[in-house]
């Protein structure tokens, strides 16, 4: 068994706690987080989690398909607006 599998998925404790709490109260309000490296777990389905990208929080609605990915994958940190020369032509 690979060591990383043995250790289980990583998820920030604070975020996990927030999710467990709001599951109990049945309120799925927006959760803001800096934790881009947290794995998306099945419990998170249905939440909207705002993931920080270094500047703003990008809301990510968690669906079944996203389970197993990391939160940061859905909050791009770079914006490519095209090259200056492209603008002139277009």
């Amino acid at each position: 068994m690979a060591r990383s599998i043995k250790k289980g998925p990583f998820i920030e404790k604070k975020l996990y706690k927030r999710i467990q709490e709001s599951l109990k109260t049945n309120q799925k309000q927006m959760i803001k987080t800096y934790s881009r490296s947290s794995t998306i777990i099945p419990e998170m389905v249905g939440f909207t989690i705002s993931v920080y990208n270094g500047k703003t929080w990008i809301p990510v609605y968690i669906t079944e398909n996203l389970v197993g990915h990391k939160l940061g994958e859905f909050s791009p940190t770079r914006i490519f607006r095209g090259h200056a020369s492209d603008k002139k032509v277009g």
Binding site: N65, H69, G72, E73, F74, P76
Partner: peptide, 11 residues
């Protein structure tokens, strides 16, 4: 699938 869920690899 990667493209549909809009993750970094899909982009």
């Amino acid at each position: 699938r990667l493209m549909d869920i809009g993750c970094y690899r899909g982009l």
